[in-house]
């Protein structure tokens, strides 16, 4: 956090599906080397915000700043090459490709396949055993590992994780978050979205709660833990 310019900054983001607004001016900052957790109930707009951040969806208002530069309207493939790695909701893998071909897809961002494999297998040794397996036939946890490996292998500037825990057994979720913590210690900035908070708050430096398209609380994870249940029950101020 020595660098004064935040790595990723979202300023007053508004976004809409067709004409239905889902984000109403969201501000969020990911400092260099920090882990930011974005929490909130179903339908709060968390995934939409991530989509805006990685270029999959246009913002109708506001600015997306990456390393201090405005990147609104930059195509997602271009952002990926600049170092924004996103692991989308569900399983962020290509189910019909083999594990190796999935990793090979990351070579578009500039790294060579051997480098990517070295990083991926170092972090996730289990993937090495599955190298020729079609990714969609692996277990959910393994698929999520592959998705994270894909995200990490190119040494991104920021890693965006959307609902890592979705559909996974709690023990596997914990395992995955241990990896997230390791990754964070190695200096990668991480923006992570979750619906259920306890695991992710243990890893995060900073957390925000989003309800109905607005950030309603923002602060240190320990402070927020108390307020989470009320946020989920929806009796917050500024929330109708």
């Amino acid at each position: 956090m020595t660098d004064p310019t935040p790595l990723l900054e979202l300023r007053g983001i508004r976004a809409a599906y067709d004409r239905i607004d889902v984000l109403f001016g969201v501000d969020l900052v990911v400092e260099q080397g920090s882990v930011v957790a974005l929490l909130g109930p179903n339908g709060a707009g968390k995934t939409t915000l991530l989509k805006v951040a990685c270029g999959l969806m246009p913002a109708t208002a506001g600015d997306v700043l990456f390393c201090g530069k405005r990147v609104n309207g930059v195509r997602p493939d271009e952002l990926a090459r600049r170092g924004v790695a996103m692991v989308p909701e569900g399983r962020g893998i290509f189910p019909n490709l083999t594990v190796r071909d999935n990793l090979r897809m990351m070579t578009y961002t500039g790294a060579s396949l051997s480098e990517i494999e070295a990083v991926a297998f170092d972090r996730f040794p289990r993937l090495k055993e599955r190298i020729r397996q079609v990714a969609g036939t692996m277990s959910g946890g393994e698929q999520q590992m592959l998705a994270m490996a894909r995200g990490l292998a190119t040494d991104p500037a920021v890693l965006i994780l959307d609902e890592l825990s979705m559909g996974l057994a709690p023990i596997i979720v914990e395992e995955l978050y241990e990896i997230v913590a390791t990754v964070a210690r190695s200096g990668v900035s991480i923006l992570v979205v979750e619906q259920f908070a306890s695991t992710v708050l243990g890893v995060a430096d900073h957390a925000a709660i989003m309800v109905h398209g607005r950030i309603v609380r923002d602060g240190a994870p320990a402070d927020l833990e108390q307020e989470l249940s009320s946020a989920y029950l929806g009796n917050q101020q500024g929330d109708r």
Binding site: C54, L56, R75, P76, D77, A80, R81, A85, M86, P88, G92, I93, F94, P95, N96, L97, D101, N102, M105, M106, Y108, T109, R150
Partner: peptide, 16 residues
């Protein structure tokens, strides 16, 4: 083959 599987994920990987 990746684009058929998931077009937007492919673009997140830097593919056009």
């Amino acid at each position: 083959r990746a684009v058929v599987d998931d077009r937007s994920l492919a673009s997140l990987n830097g593919v056009r």
